[in-house]
Write a protein that binds this DNA or RNA. Structure first.
Lengths: 194, 194
DNA sequence: TGACGAAACGAACGACCGTTCTATTGTTGG
DNA sequence: CCAACAATAGAACGGTCGTTCGTTTCGTCA
């Protein structure tokens, strides 16, 4: 890794942490430069524009998400174990950055702002839902889950549950949250065996 | 209503719309003043500080939420009808402002920033969950919902579903969203009668 | 080791930020 | 109708924003 790539990577790590706390828009070139100990212009040169920086932050987040959440989960045994592995890692991912899930933050900022950053985020989130759906489909075929379940409906509900929980955890700080989350997932997967 | 109160109310209406699109932090005194056609200093005088403005915006959002969502829903027949009325109005509330639910936006900005604005938001969201819980309890007592259900667990899952849906609707724009939402709520309330 | 390109710096820019003053306008009760 | 006060305007402030440009330092390879 060349010097430039190394610096860029360090900058993006700091930017990711900052963005999770203060939003993409809250990542200021000045404060970011101060954070990593370099000059505004020196840092700026790596990204050529503010917009590019936002896209780079998002891409760095996606890369990290795949490395820490998706890829490890896909190594779990197929079917329900893999489904739960992905869900658990996704939930734990909310604690990976100081301000919580970067995609939750970015979603609110970007959902009304067309552009490459939004496209990137939407694609990555659709990927996540699709991954849940695919894994659920296999879980049904394997007999882990009830035949009557619709994998896409299940993926939708899992997605809602995950983001809803992130909200409950970070805003409401309900200590009962994790237990309620577990119960909700169990009911989601096995509503028929009560 | 005095002239000042009238102006303040107009300003807050515009601010609410702006905040829903660009976040509380995106509401700038200059742009807001331009929007309502007055001077920065004239507008500023109504709030005395930027922080106060944020709190006022949030309070205006809460007032509107109660007027348009909670109060009308509480007029529905007790039990499941009231539960569904509250849920439906809550979901529709996402289209009340141009940038979607103001609380979803504010939650992301405030969940890491202690202060009166955060306190106000947390209290209002806890109120919402509690309201769902109370109505669900009655619905169970009335025999509308299964005796085995835990009202608080149900409220948690409804809350997750609502916020998850807002996310799916605004970011992913999945046209199947509303149907999936309806199916999810039905399953939530009547998982036992399949 | 010396040259050359990559990387970082420092200073400056115009624009906008929140906030403060003072002055001017508008409203309203006696 | 006019005095008293509420409401708004205008200009200015220090600060930070993203961005530019010319210069200097650093890494690397012949």
């Amino acid at each position: 890794m060349t010097k430039g790539e190394d610096t860029r990577s360090n900058v993006l790590d700091a930017a990711l942490a900052m963005a999770s706390r203060e939003g993409l828009a809250g990542v200021t070139i000045g404060r970011l430069a101060e954070q990593v100990g370099m000059s505004k212009s020196g840092l700026f040169a790596h990204f050529a524009s503010r917009d590019n920086l936002e896209v780079a932050i998002l891409q760095a987040g996606i890369d990290r998400f795949i490395a820490r959440v998706v890829s490890p989960a896909l190594k779990a045994p197929r079917g329900e174990p893999r489904l739960r592995a992905l869900f658990d890692r996704w939930i734990a991912w909310g604690d990976d950055l100081p301000g919580g899930c970067i995609f939750r933050v970015a979603a609110v900022e970007l959902d009304d702002r067309p552009g490459p950053a939004r496209d990137l985020l939407v694609a990555s989130q659709r990927d996540l839902v699709d991954t849940f759906s695919t894994i659920a489909k296999v879980a049904i075929e394997e007999g882990h889950l009830s035949k009557g379940l619709d994998p896409q409906q299940l993926a939708f509900e899992i997605y809602c549950l995950g983001y809803g929980y992130h909200q409950v955890a970070r805003l409401l700080r309900d200590p009962a949250g994790p237990a309620r989350l577990r119960a909700a997932l169990d009911r989601l997967l096995h509503a028929d065996r009560a």
